[in-house]
Amino acid sequence: MFAQQLMNGLMLGGIYALVAVSFTLTIGILNFLNFSIPALFMLGGVVSCALLAAGVPAVGAAAGALAATGLASLLVERCTFRWLSTSDPHIPLVSSLGFLIFFENLVLVYFGSDAVGYPSPFARASVKVSDLTVSLPQTGGFLLALVLVALCYVLLKYTKLGRGLRSIAESPAIAEMLGVKVGWTVSSVYLVSGLLAGIGGILFGISYLQVSWDMGSEVALKGVSAMVLGGMGNVWGAVLGALIIAVIEVMTIAYLNSEAVNVFVYGLLLVIIAFCPRGLLGDRVKMAERM
């Protein structure tokens, strides 16, 4: 029983981790809390669901869903990035909230307010290992999430793009002077971040076999908490935070009740911020260096 719950928690954690890393990218590099990420997550799930239902093969459905999230993310970039450098940090935040409301309600109009079954090509494939039920799509999704996060890490740490990003995190003006193509680099941050969220949405559909217009909100809140828990802008921290939160969540539901989840998750978050007002692992620039 406990081992089973632990495994379920870790699987859920994989999805939270993708969302948390998605948040971390824009916060760590652009200092921007991108509220449209829940919508991108949802688009990933809902668009792939619609394509599958229309008879598109799995690969095509995934590609279509990612194209949709990528485009949506770039659209958000067009309307938010130019405000990031201005003095008022609330403007991009409000714009991204506008996008959240826009996308969610757009999907609501077409899909209705009820959750829709996800026509997963893998359905409920699972194997029994002693008395553990291991869901194959969930395990695959979890491994994929870890691989993607690792790729992100390598991208940030070892590539030219990553160096450009780190210089932008320090100062966009100086990065510009050093010859970094700021506009292009920032677009790629949004794109990567949007794609991660989109993949998270698809994995959610595959793992839990249903999607809905508001599937992003709860997951995104958990993702943000995971990110703060692990330290903003720190990719592996976000993964660790996501796993911790997901395990707490699953355990609370299993051994207490589902209403108690938020008390523990958000209570923990509140206490952490109260005692480490700049997150568990210090400030933003240092994080950019560590990445």
């Binding site: 809140l221 938020n262 958000y266 978050l269 509140l270 109260a274």
Partner: peptide, 22 residues
Amino acid sequence: VLRARGIYLTIATLAFSEVVVA
């Protein structure tokens, strides 16, 4: 909460709200 700034403060207030409701 006000010891935190910017995004941290926003998230702390959000967490507070969720705790109250929960």
